[in-house]
């Protein structure tokens, strides 16, 4: 019983982190119709910036300032990447391919820059909250509880922004009909930058949370990015709520696979799952047929 609960807990923790990453990917995908390969480096840079500003080895300004710096600098970087690497190709016939190349280039460039700036030595963030909580006879690290609670709260805030605010409605409008959005006077490029900014900020938070349970390396975002990609496709690309649902399903599945068949075969099992789901439901698990 104990083992089952800890497998489930680990699944929920993973699912929460994947939800943060995959939602950002899905937001950019629905709004701009492109896939951002640089998303993985946003995770690593978020962790590095938080480390640099927050920890004693860095500027020592405290965890709060570290997180604020990570989120705001990464949001700005997201906007910058949209402006310089995506916008010049908008309206171009080969937009999707061009952006694959430019964002891959950004990934490699930023990954190596991070290596130059912070060196090859592994770093780690201290847990945001110390200690353990006893829940249902199970000792759970408080940091994991924070991940499990914070992630849905942030996604709920994103949902509220998209559903309840005028700007959120404009963002959804852009994803549904770009020409019509232009024709009601919505400044579409500004909202593209906004989508990128939100996406990068969510990745930064995922990086900060991940940075205290794993080591911070320039490539730390790549493996979660692949998982987030599976999640986004699995959950139904283009549907934010489907993506969030998919994240928890994949997180749980991964935890179960790691326990029963081992770490080595887990990615293969996840991809197999994705392929099987797509065979039966090409629109994704929670996707809708148009």
């Amino acid at each position: 019983m104990d083992i089952l609960s800890s497998v489930l807990l680990s699944g929920v923790v993973l699912g929460s982190l994947y939800a943060l990453m995959a939602t950002g990917l899905a937001l950019v995908w629905t709004t701009l119709g492109i896939f951002n390969f640089a998303h993985g480096i946003f995770i690593a840079l978020g962790a590095y910036v938080a480390w640099q500003f927050g920890t004693e080895e860095g500027f020592g300004l405290g965890a709060t300032i570290g997180i604020v710096a990570a989120v705001s600098l990464l949001a700005a970087l997201g906007c910058l990447i949209e402006r310089t690497l995506v916008r010049p190709f908008l309206g171009h016939r080969n937009l999707v391919l061009a952006v694959v190349i430019t964002t891959l280039a950004a990934l490699i460039f930023l990954e190596n820059s991070a290596l130059l700036v912070w060196g090859p030595r592994f770093k780690q963030l201290p847990p945001l909250v110390d200690g353990t909580l006893a829940i249902g006879g199970l000792d759970i690290a408080a940091h994991e509880v924070l991940i499990v609670l914070l992630s849905p709260a942030l996604l709920l805030a994103l949902w509220a922004f998209l559903r309840l605010t005028y700007m959120g409605a404009a963002l959804r409008a852009v994803s549904q009909n770009q020409d019509a959005a232009l024709m009601v006077g919505i400044p579409v490029p500004v909202l593209f930058a906004l989508a990128f900014g939100i996406s990068a900020a969510l990745a930064a938070i995922a990086g900060v949370l991940l940075g205290s349970i794993r080591f911070i390396t320039p490539a730390m975002g790549n493996e979660p990015l692949v998982k987030a990609l599976i999640v986004a496709i699995f959950g139904g690309l283009g549907s934010i709520s489907g993506t969030i649902g998919g994240a928890y399903v994949i997180g749980m599945l991964e935890a179960v696979c790691v326990y029963f068949i081992g770490l080595y075969w887990t990615p293969a099992a996840l991809f197999l799952c994705m392929i099987l789901v797509l065979l039966v439901r090409p629109q994704g698990l929670f996707g809708r047929v148009d």
Partner: peptide
């Protein structure tokens, strides 16, 4: 034009006044 397909008529009209 179908305008904003996954939004209600009321929401579509509200966005018209952007």
């Amino acid at each position: 034009s179908t305008m904003f397909r996954d939004m209600s008529v009321a929401e579509n009209l509200r966005l018209g006044a952007y």
